[in-house]
Simulated assay, not measured.
Amino acid sequence: MNEISILTTLAVVHLVALASPGPDFALVVQAAGKHGRKAGLAIALGISLAILLHAVFAITGVSVLIQQLPALGVALKVAGGCYLLYLGIGALKTVPGRLRQGDGPLLKGSADSLNIKQATIKGFVTNLLNPKALVFFLSLLTSLVPTQMSMAGKGAAIGILWGLSFAWFALLSYLLTGKRMQQKLQGIAVWIDALCGTVFTLVGGIILGSVLMATIG
């Protein structure tokens, strides 16, 4: 298989993975619907930068090293699980009060607002600490990108993963923040938080549960 075929296959597989709902998808939906386009785009940038780092780790062998150090792998899973639980519980605990008082658009500068820097960091940390992302990119790149591939080819593979990631989540954010769509999302913002909070909590709980079961076993 030549390098163009490899890169094409890599792009297709990655696009399918991006389209599958998960914590990253939920985070963009939540941020775009609740805080607007700039926050959604910043989340998209943060997620894509974390994916860029995952890709570099996988290509350079750092991910393999992490996988071969059980203590480091467990620490990553615990950190990722705890962070997702933190996001989930943080979203869910606001739901009852907002339902009682009636939910409305967030005011700029309110305590619950999200600036560009905060949104970028939130997207970056959410993806970086997701242990499933580490495993996915390690498996994807080691199975599709041969060790003898040229440096230009490996660089292109990393660029494709980053570029597609940012483009997908940026497009999602853009579509969710059109005027009509934003009005609809603001009307159900509390339910979006409830759904996203549930997703974060479940994924975080599953990750921590798997660590606990492995420890007991």
Rank of each mutant, 00 (worst) to 15 (best):
D112E: 13
A133C: 14
S143F: 07
A189M: 06
D193Q: 10
A156S: 11
L87H: 02
L134D: 07
S173Q: 03
A50S: 15
A75V: 03
G81E: 02
L49Q: 11
I188F: 11
I158Y: 03
S139E: 04
G22M: 02
Q67R: 11
V16H: 08
Q186W: 05
F169A: 07
A31Q: 06
I4A: 08
L45S: 09
F57I: 02
L99C: 06
S5E: 15
S5N: 14
Q30A: 15
V74F: 07
L185G: 04
F166R: 06
L69M: 14
G104R: 15
A214N: 03
G88F: 08
V62K: 04
T201S: 14
T9Q: 10
L52A: 00
K132S: 10
I207G: 02
A42D: 01
L164M: 11
C196S: 12
G80N: 03
A111F: 11
H35T: 09
I216C: 06
L129P: 08
D103Y: 04
R100H: 06
S173R: 11
Q183S: 14
A55F: 02
P131N: 11
A55I: 07
A55M: 01
F166Q: 00
K93S: 08
S173F: 08
Q148M: 11
T215H: 13
A189V: 09
G217V: 12
R37D: 14
F57V: 00
H14T: 03
V135Y: 06
A119P: 09
Q182F: 00
Q68R: 15
P131L: 10
Q186D: 11
G123N: 02
F169L: 01
A170Q: 06
I89V: 15
S110P: 04
L175M: 10
F169N: 08
Q118M: 11
F57L: 03
G61C: 00
L76C: 07
G123P: 01
I206M: 13
E3V: 10
L208N: 08
N115E: 06
G90R: 03
V64R: 13
K122D: 06
L176F: 00
A39V: 08
I158R: 02
N2W: 00
W162S: 09
L84K: 01
A167W: 10
V62F: 05
L72C: 07
F166I: 15
L208A: 01
S63Y: 10
L107I: 06
A32H: 07
G163A: 15
I116Y: 12
A156C: 12
G205L: 09
V199A: 01
L53P: 02
A19K: 02
Y174F: 14
S143I: 04
G187I: 04
A39M: 02
G163V: 14
S5I: 09
L164F: 15
V64A: 15
Q101G: 15
L53W: 01
K108C: 07
L72M: 12
A194G: 05
L45T: 03
A119M: 05
G88M: 08
T142P: 01
